[in-house]
Amino acid sequence: MITNEKIDSFIKKIPPAPKILQTTLKLLNEGELIEAAKVAKEDLALSSYLRTLVNKPIYGFKNEVKDISQIFGILGVAKSQQAVYAYMVSLLSPSQWNFFKLNKNNFANLQAELAVNWQKITKYLKIENKDIQSAIALLPASIIVSEALFCEKKEDVELLRTTKDIDLNTILKRLCKKDLFDICEAIAIKWEMESVIGEIVQAASGVKPSEDIQTDALGKWMHLLLFYTLSKPVYIDAGLNDFISFNIEYVSDIYEDFATLMEIA
């Protein structure tokens, strides 16, 4: 169904981070927001993406924010870095989704919802490390990878799933000994993201707890946040709710805190 050759070819086709993005991230890393904005402006697609992203209702700005310097200024270093990473991930998304019923707009909404709630979580956990704050940007890459690998096998997967409760991650793991999150980590390495980002996303799969206590705790929060978000009708309709398996036991010790933070009645 899916072979290692196909996975390797997918990873190989991912271009390295464009020069402009690399420079923007480097300047953000140095705290040079104005300089970073100047460079980012040169990439019209990035500018457009950032404008659309921060003007989504979930960001809660009353007035439209247009200028990139203003956007970086409002977001600050960590959130700006996260937004640039989110843009990089969005570059991998297909022009036409076949396996999932998604489009450019609701994929961007998903990225925004995850990002805003992850900010809430990191704030609650008093985490200021900007790489950890950015880690959420990589998570939706698992959806893009699923789409890329399974889009031609939709009927086979549906048929298989009428016989067995099996998720895409398990199918991939059993067939290729590699799962969606290994591929996400490979993307993170290719883009020279900080290693902690890939590690948290691996733990967020819900099947690979990290030996590092903090990374594991963050993986739990991210796993739960993912399913909180994917339980919304628009993403259930898109077929995302069960693309990976939700591991309740993994997140049980943080659920009460999560429910309080997200104001779940």
Binding site: T162, S231, P233, I236, D242
Partner: peptide, 26 residues
Amino acid sequence: MRAVIKNGIGVFHPQGFLDGNSSLSM
């Protein structure tokens, strides 16, 4: 969502958070 059918038993496997909106979509 389709039920997984085995040994004459059909089982639905919803995931995550079930409220009035989400379960209708499932």
